[in-house]
Amino acid sequence: MTDLLEVRDLTKRFGGLTAVRNLGFSVSEGESLGLIGPNGAGKTTVFNLIMSELRQDSGELFFQGREISKYPTHARVKLGIARTYQVPRPFGEMTVTENIRMGMMPDDLWQMLTKGPQHDAERDIGKDVGFSEREVAMYPGELSMGNLRKLELARTIAAEPKLLLLDEVFAGLTVGEIAQISELLVEKRKQGLTYIMVSHDLRALAPLVDRVVVMSFGAIIAEGTFKEVIADKKVREAYLGQ
């Protein structure tokens, strides 16, 4: 198996605080990785670094064997990395369909100007994540948290990512909604999508990942299958605090 993403020796400091410290891990094509750890472990920072929403102080990022540290965010999306946000960030004045459209935009301004939207593809993606005909015409302000999460997934899936970064996709959802999103991810996984998932809901996360990386205070403290890491003494200490 080839590595889709490799993170090498990544470090990020905020003033005196080292949020991510000499971090290294990799994800192979088709694999699903769980990234867990207590609050403030630096998980979201790792996502921000992978997406270039923050610049690392040192270390390298390889995507499909290519060093991408110099790529700006949108270029990384075009290479095939996409993310969702812990707090959904839809475009508030656009309908669900229009939000999905933004994930499918060409890079070229001329094409944006001359070619119309691909209505069929937009509708398919909306249906794919479980929106009804009525819901795709709604505005984000009218959607439930579950539907907002779906919208984020739809917009990122529209960009046809090879690697998806999922940040707390289960937070604030009902049990039914969690099941719905899980089902969707299982489906996507079968279709060969690679993803890294950050979640506090370990029960929901466990069946969705092949392997887990545990972070605490910006560093990796354990790595392995879900069962292995959860049995690890260091992990238990990190979660329970001493």
């Binding site: 929403e53 700006p72 965010t73 949108h74 075009k78 996409a82 475009f91 933004m102 917009r155």
Partner: peptide
């Protein structure tokens, strides 16, 4: 439409792949 995403949320626009 792409131009107006900058007004709504420029960071989210970037992470949707818009330059």
């Amino acid at each position: 439409t792409a131009l107006s995403t900058i007004r709504m949320d420029e960071d989210a626009a970037r992470s949707s792949g818009l330059n």
